[in-house]
């Protein structure tokens, strides 16, 4: 009898403990979700208010949802032009980057030659270089080759600084491909280029999409070098754009919020579509490095 009571008591204690753990767990999970989402939702709601409403009560919902703020954001700031610049710069630098990186990865991954690990180690070490510390030489190099304040300058720089990461990701995938298919192709008379374009490239699609997604997102979000290497409005990227909205909309906060929301939306949509690639792009370098 006593024994059974004891067990029951223990179980009740355990249950209480487990219950407490569960509550704590959910408090933590909800806190972090709230912390991330609430400011964003607040920003979105504020972007539909009038300035008077915003100053009056930061919590209230807009009496009338002001679509006009968004029209304003587009009209005043040349937002479309800047988004276009970002797409062109991000797109071209992604193509250039992935092409260079996959060609290099092909050589390193599929052939045995002296110094291949040395080359790879050098490139991988590039991931750890604090690029911000290289602002002066980047400025000098880009100016010297006459690309200061051009889209081409940013395309070149972005392609280059993303190469260590892309090579790392693509090589990882290429290493996992079996030798047999390639050897069969070789025997059938498929040359160096044929094997790259017809066999290795299509088979490493996953790695290439991961690297490309990661590269494009990085370019889309990049601010420091875009700020350093451009000066005129018609080559500005979207990130510089929202930075300078602060000046343009000095009193019109709600339109500025609308502009920020517009700049975030493509990132979020892209993330929803390419979630797997973005996550593995952001983590693969870390986990293996």
């Amino acid at each position: 009898m006593t024994k059974r009571n004891e067990t029951a008591y223990l179980n009740a204690g355990d249950a209480a403990k487990a219950g407490l753990g569960k509550v704590l767990k959910w408090i933590l999970m909800l806190f972090f979700a709230f912390y991330t989402l609430f400011p964003l939702i607040w920003l979105i709601i504020s972007s539909f208010k009038t300035n008077t409403e915003l100053f009056g009560d930061p919590f209230s919902l807009p009496a009338v949802w002001q679509i006009g703020n968004y029209i304003n954001a587009f009209k005043v700031s040349g937002l479309l032009k800047m988004m276009g610049n970002s797409v062109v710069i991000g797109g071209l630098s992604t193509v250039l980057n992935v092409l260079c990186a996959s060609m290099l990865a092909y050589c390193i991954s599929r052939f045995h030659f002296k110094g291949r690990e040395a080359i790879f180690t050098f490139f991988a070490a590039g991931i750890l270089v604090p690029l911000n510390a290289l602002m002066v030489p980047y400025y000098v190099i880009i100016s010297q080759i006459g690309l200061y304040n051009t889209r081409a300058g940013l395309i070149l720089l972005y392609s280059a600084i993303g190469i260590p990461m892309s090579t790392f990701i693509i090589r990882g995938l290429m290493d996992s491909l079996s030798r047999e298919i390639e050897e069969a192709a070789y025997i059938d008379g498929c040359g160096f280029f044929g094997r790259y374009f017809r066999i290795i490239l299509p088979l490493s699609q996953n790695g290439i999409v991961t690297a490309a997604t990661f590269q494009f997102l990085t370019c889309w979000n990049e601010f420091v070098f875009a700020n350093l290497l451009t000066s005129s409005q018609n080559v500005r990227t979207i990130q510089l754009g929202i930075r300078y909205f602060t000046n343009q909309f000095s009193t019109d906060f709600v339109s500025m919020y609308a502009a920020i929301v517009i700049s975030i939306v493509p990132s979020i949509i892209g993330y929803m579509i390419f979630q797997k690639q973005i996550v593995s792009g952001l983590t693969s370098g870390a986990v293996k490095g």
């Binding site: 920003l43 997102l217 990130q239 929202i242 975030i264 979020i268």
Partner: peptide, 25 residues
């Protein structure tokens, strides 16, 4: 999965947008 997606948001939003957001906050 929902929580993992949400926690990852700040990684895909640009640093400029985050900075503007918090400057407003």
């Amino acid at each position: 999965k929902f929580f993992r997606t949400v926690y990852f948001f700040p990684q895909v939003i640009s640093g400029v947008a985050l900075a503007m957001l918090w400057s407003a906050m």
